[in-house]
């Protein structure tokens, strides 16, 4: 479409304006501010006069063992929940794709956890995984798997395990819907040709299905990684970072430092380190995916 007349130019500008304004004001400005804050001494007592202190916040963050605990926790959370969500989601998608009746019903019911809010889901999990809760009773008195109650919420790795189970439970439905759509795009004649060649189900999966949905896999991988780094509400509700910050993730630690101790400069530095890490990981993921493509091409 041409933009010759002045009237049209003005109208284009008017359409662009609200978006630009909101975007600049509420997103771009905070990003710049975050960057500046991370180089400033900025706490409760100096809220109004901030002093430039160079890299001191970053030094403080990198020397802080609680930061590294939260960093490790976040990485572990992401490394565990992302692949499991993808594998289980893909598995369910394949199952749903293979049935004719009740496809919609299964899709809808599997999607329920996704639309349940994080606050509510976390509270349910906290209640179920309580040391005296239903799950422990089931494990010890019905299944007799353990002799005594498992203290799920009381230590670092078991507490994180609960948060990870929640993350996976809540994520499968989303993965399923995305993968289901991708599966339905894979041309049927490829499968038919493979069947003539005598491929079994597993061979078909690796030779046709996976290459057919690799774009979706990459997309899901990137999105879930961002989601994994974003874990916040579940940790805050389930363990609250206890015992003594051992189950904190980057964001809950950042939030604690900012809003409980007032170290806004420190928190800004933590946020920036996280954004930086995510950026690096995104680049790495795209690269890894491209390499695998090449390998696949060579094999094929």
């Amino acid at each position: 479409m041409k933009t010759k007349s002045n009237k049209n130019k003005i109208q284009i500008f008017l359409l662009l304006l609200p978006g630009l304004a909101v975007f600049c004001f509420f997103t771009v400005y905070p990003i710049i501010k975050l960057f500046l804050m991370s180089f400033s001494k900025w706490d409760f007592t100096s809220m109004r006069q901030q002093e430039f202190i160079g890299l001191q916040n970053y030094r403080e963050v990198l020397a802080d063992k609680f930061f590294w605990t939260s960093f490790t926790n976040t990485i572990v959370y992401t490394l565990v929940t992302v692949p499991l969500q993808m594998i289980l989601g893909l598995f369910v998608a394949i199952l749903v794709n293979g049935i004719k009746k009740f496809q919609v019903t299964f899709r809808v019911l599997n999607y329920l956890p996704v639309i349940t809010s994080w606050v509510i889901a976390s509270l349910i999990f906290r209640y179920v995984f309580n040391t005296e809760g239903l799950l422990n009773y089931f494990l010890s008195q019905v299944l007799h798997v353990t002799a005594s109650n498992i203290r799920w919420l009381d230590s670092r790795w078991s507490g994180l395990t609960v948060a990870m189970i929640l993350g996976i439970w809540k994520g499968i439905g989303w993965n399923m819907v995305i993968f289901l759509a991708a599966l339905q795009q894979v041309p049927i004649d490829l499968y038919e040709a493979a069947a003539i060649d005598g491929c079994n189900g597993i061979q078909k999966f690796f030779k046709i299905t996976l290459p057919g949905i690799k774009g979706t896999i990459l997309f899901v991988w990137v999105m879930l990684t961002i989601g994994g780094f974003n874990v916040f509400t579940s940790i805050k509700m389930i363990t609250g970072g206890n015992p003594a910050h051992q189950t904190d993730t980057i964001l809950t630690w950042m939030y604690y430092k900012a809003f409980s101790t007032g170290k806004f400069g420190y928190s800004a530095a933590v946020s920036f380190i996280m954004a930086f890490t995510l950026g690096i990981m995104a680049i790495f993921q795209f690269k890894a995916m491209r390499n695998r493509d090449r390998e696949l091409e060579e094999i094929g």
Binding site: F23, F25, F26, T27, V28, Y29, P30, I31, K33, L34, M37, I226, G227, F229, N230, F232, L251, M254, Y255, A258, F264, S267, A268, S271, M274, A275, L278, G279, A282
Partner: peptide, 21 residues
Amino acid sequence: GFIIITMIIPGTTLIVPQFEL
């Protein structure tokens, strides 16, 4: 490009400067 980049940064990361705003 900027719109795409902001999709990668989780909203909660910006909570401190947004609070200041």
